[in-house]
């Protein structure tokens, strides 16, 4: 499944070469019929985050203060961790924890 992931607000610093936009191919998660945000987060944690994962993940969700948008829509409206993803979705992560 092809996804475009964007990281902002300082989260890009946790990734290789601080790259903001990542076009990725995410394999189906074990035991999941459809890809969900929960599966994506664990994939991102193991495959993209290079340092300080605690700045991104807390428990099995994003750290509070990190905003998530799926196709420009607040993920809280899409089901949060249970939100289902489809091919070519754009998921944006923005941290609000870095001062203003």
């Amino acid at each position: 499944m092809h996804l475009t992931l964007e990281f902002g607000g300082g989260l890009e610093l946790l990734l290789e070469k601080s790259t903001k936009v990542h076009k990725v191919d995410v394999p189906p998660m074990d035991g999941e019929v459809k890809a969900t945000m929960k599966g994506l987060l664990s994939w991102v944690k193991s495959n993209l985050i290079k340092e300080r994962p605690e700045m991104f993940i807390k428990g099995d969700s994003v750290r509070p203060g990190v905003l998530v948008l799926i196709n420009d829509c607040d993920w809280e409206l899409c089901g949060g961790l249970d939100a289902e993803l489809e091919d070519k979705d754009v998921v944006v992560f923005i941290s609000t924890l870095h001062g203003g």
Binding site: D72, C73, D74, C78, A83
Partner: peptide, 22 residues
């Protein structure tokens, strides 16, 4: 009846466009 997919609910203010933010 599936879980709400991005933007499937309507804005409570205008009732026309899809909601994008809580």
């Amino acid at each position: 009846a599936a879980p709400a997919r991005a933007g499937s609910r309507l804005c409570v203010r205008c009732g026309e466009r899809k909601a994008a933010l809580k």
